[in-house]
Design a binder for these strands. Structure first.
Lengths: 342, 342
DNA sequence: CTGTTAGCGCCTTCAC
DNA sequence: GTGAAGGCGCTAACAG
């Protein structure tokens, strides 16, 4: 009925050895007689001894744990990303602690605190959409906990990050539509000051310029990413005299809401108006009428790559970390075209 | 340039106090003069002191961390479940450590080891589809680490679990189709010996009996859940002389693959053959032709409820845990009917 | 009110 | 080859 996990001491007692000898034996120290090593290991196996990590952590200062903070686990993008993170981390014997900010800065702060207290070795963060104040991340620096941002990162230069070249994604999207003959191309934008949105906007403008299409401000509408807001944005587009013949949406969910609204208004999806989105939901492969194309951002790979970078940083000497160099890894997106019964 | 996190000792030294006084002050012990408390807290705040949890863990034996093990983070069901787990856990100041088994028993074992070494306080597990040997879970008992299984649980009686009454879900599904006039109702089954599958089968049989529909073994086909296997299963159904007019699929992904195959064979989805599935993917709300109906299993709630139960167990005295009573919480599923332009 | 001591489980000197 | 001692950060029991 003894319930506690066995310790090095118990093994020692059973064999009339000292704890340190047992410790060394378990680590195959060369100063221990093979016979002792054998005996120790046998008893350890029998008791199903497992080293208590918390104790080792206390000593070494390393927890072999990475923290992941992201907005929503339920969004396909993030669940794929964290899957990549977990796979890579566990391959390298790291554990993954996770928290979701629900796009709320306060929750984000709390999670950062919790992770700090937990003494994670490093952190992977995709920041909440409305986070403007980054002081809670600054604190991590003091503690020398390295952070790699992915997907959604602050705009300062003194951070590590793995992101996707969204401007290029937008370029591909616009050019794709242009080739299909569209010139009245609208964009349902996300939160205006979000970097990820500004990058898309930049791509939108640069592509129009390149293609010699005049920029029409009426073709840019905004959504706060809620269904209602997207419907309203779509409504605005449909009310124009010369409405768009193609719509690019900030992300898949916005696209789906927009398409839903358009359908309700008897617009034929991808016939009367063609849709293109960002993120490329896996389930598009099963839909009859997904957006014509979607910018794939490879979340699994982003997660993996970010974790790889974080582990590299963890392997550099502590002192050398702080001043950089700061890595900004930028992955190329790719426009996925969904061909259907057409 | 000082980088290590401040400790209680440093605060003590700065104030010429002992470490224990500082510790007590930080905990608002009543035996400490208000003045001291104030001074200590000021210095602590200034240094941005945060207690080192690993140290507290070592002492108390509690890590305030829950482990979650599930097959795939990317499956909508699980990402919703873990979202519920994380939300509930973080409300109660627990951290969540996670690992995905990828439905592989060996990986599952490794993760259990890792979690054990990490000394998580408790574990939430949805077992891998092909796990037959449960010895790795037995080991957790020795360590007195309580486990709550959810969704997919072993069939022994001496465990805690939160699951969904799948037989009832199947009953609803069959009766729904029957009311629509169907009598030739097929079932694309999952792995035969999986409990979750046998429950569905039981429901299938009991409903047919109740409805006085003769059981036709040709209407039950098997899929290992891969796309190819599902396509093959569907092919078998379509080759029957008197083929089914309705198909119930083991889960959403099987349903989508089946529908995809049927479409390719020029079957009109939900006209020539009606489809019903299990799990009710959120994205169905956006599809033109989702299954007619799907059994909603409320993964978020399952996750929440499982976590709640686990925390309750953690609050009982250690000694009292082992012998139970073992809770088996069984949630009612609900058939969601997808009405569309029809 | 506050300081001292001891110990959580482990590893790492240093000593024999 | 092995043992003893000390310490990682913190708290709890025992002294004052």
């Amino acid at each position: 009925m003894k319930k506690r996990a066995p310790t090095i001491k118990e093994i020692a007692k059973m064999l009339n050895l000292s704890a340190s000898t047992v410790s060394r034996a378990l680590h195959d120290s060369r100063n221990i007689s093979p016979a002792t090593i054998k005996r120790v290991k046998e008893v350890a196996a029998e008791l199903e001894y497992e080293p208590n990590q918390t104790a080792m952590f206390l000593q070494s200062g390393k927890t072999l744990t990475l923290g992941v903070i992201l907005p929503h686990l339920t969004e396909a993008f993030f669940s794929q990303a964290i899957s990549g993170i977990e796979d890579f981390a566990s391959e390298h014997n790291y554990n993954v602690l996770m928290g979701q900010s629900h796009d709320d800065t306060n929750r984000e702060k709390k999670i950062v605190e919790a992770m700090k207290n937990h003494r994670v070795d490093g952190l992977l963060i995709s920041i909440a959409k409305n986070t403007k104040d980054f002081s809670h991340f600054e604190a991590l620096r003091k503690y020398d906990i390295p952070v790699v941002f992915f997907d959604c990162a602050p705009e300062t230069s003194d951070i590590h990050s793995v992101t996707c070249k969204l401007e290029a994604g937008m370029n591909e999207a616009v050019e794709f539509l242009s080739k299909k003959g569209h010139t009245r191309i609208a964009y349902i934008s996300g939160p205006r000051d979000l970097l990820a949105n500004r990058e898309r906007m930049a791509g939108y403008h640069s592509s129009l310029k390149l293609l010699n299409i005049a920029f029409n401000p009426q073709y840019v509408v905004h959504s706060d990413l809620s269904k209602e807001s997207t419907h309203y944005a779509m409504q605005n587009l449909l009310s124009l005299k010369a409405g768009p013949t193609a719509v690019i949406a900030f992300n898949d969910y916005v696209a789906l809401d927009a398409m839903q609204y358009a359908s309700k208004m008897n617009i034929r999806i991808n016939k009367d108006i063609s849709f293109v989105s960002f993120s490329n939901l896996p389930v598009y492969n099963y839909m009859e009428n997904p957006p014509l194309a979607s910018v794939e951002q490879f979340p699994y790979r982003q997660g993996q790559r970010a974790t790889e970078l974080l582990l590299e940083i963890l392997n550099t000497v502590k002192g050398e970390r702080a001043q950089g160099p700061f890595q900004k890894i930028i992955l190329e997106p790719r426009l996925f075209i969904h061909t259907r019964f057409s």
